[in-house]
Amino acid sequence: MSTRQKKIRKTGRLFIPIIAIAFISYFGFHSIHGDRGMRAMQRFEVRKAQLELRLAELVEDRKKLQRQVKLLPSNGPVVRDMLDERAREALNLSRPNEIVIFDFN
């Protein structure tokens, strides 16, 4: 009578840990470097800060324009200084004794 014995291979014992390490490595890498990972989150935060600064600038510009619009009457007399300023700006004219300061904000 003979019995067959199975030979236990060391490679069989390593199969599941190797697969587990591969999955952990894959998901770990993508949690840091992926499209929604930690580095992407940092880039989004920087972009958000830039856009918030731009929004603050635009809000200030809008308030400035709203103040200028309030000076222009809808049905009453036109404020002389505002009319003079708009005409000079539209026609690109100035008096000889005036100093022109360009504001590019």
Rank of each mutant, 00 (worst) to 15 (best):
D61L: 12
T11I: 14
R47W: 01
S2A: 15
R62Y: 09
F29V: 08
M1P: 08
D84A: 13
I99Y: 06
R54T: 03
D81F: 00
T3R: 15
G28M: 00
L83C: 15
E85L: 11
M41G: 06
M1A: 14
I24G: 00
L58E: 05
T3W: 14
L58H: 05
I19Q: 04
N97C: 04
R80Y: 05
R36V: 05
K64I: 13
D103F: 03
E60T: 15
R86I: 05
K64C: 09
G12H: 04
R67A: 09
L65G: 09
E45K: 08
D103H: 02
N97Q: 12
L14S: 05
T11M: 09
S2P: 13
I18Y: 11
I21S: 03
R36L: 08
P96N: 01
V78P: 10
E98L: 00
P77T: 12
L93S: 11
I16T: 13
A20V: 13
E52A: 09
Q66Y: 04
N92Q: 11
R54Y: 03
L65C: 06
K6Y: 15
D84Q: 10
Y26F: 08
F29R: 05
P77Q: 13
R95Q: 11
F23K: 00
I32P: 00
Q5I: 09
R47M: 03
R62E: 06
K7R: 13
R88Y: 00
I19S: 00
L55S: 01
L72H: 01
N105Q: 01
D84Y: 04
V78S: 11
L65N: 14
M38V: 12
D81C: 02
S94T: 11
F102Q: 12
A22M: 02
L14I: 05
L83D: 15
D35V: 11
L14A: 08
G37I: 03
R67T: 05
F27H: 01
K10W: 07
S74P: 01
V100C: 09
R43A: 10
V78C: 08
F23G: 00
D81Y: 01
R95S: 12
A40T: 00
K48P: 04
V46M: 02
R43E: 12
R80P: 07
S94Y: 10
H30T: 12
E89F: 14
P17G: 02
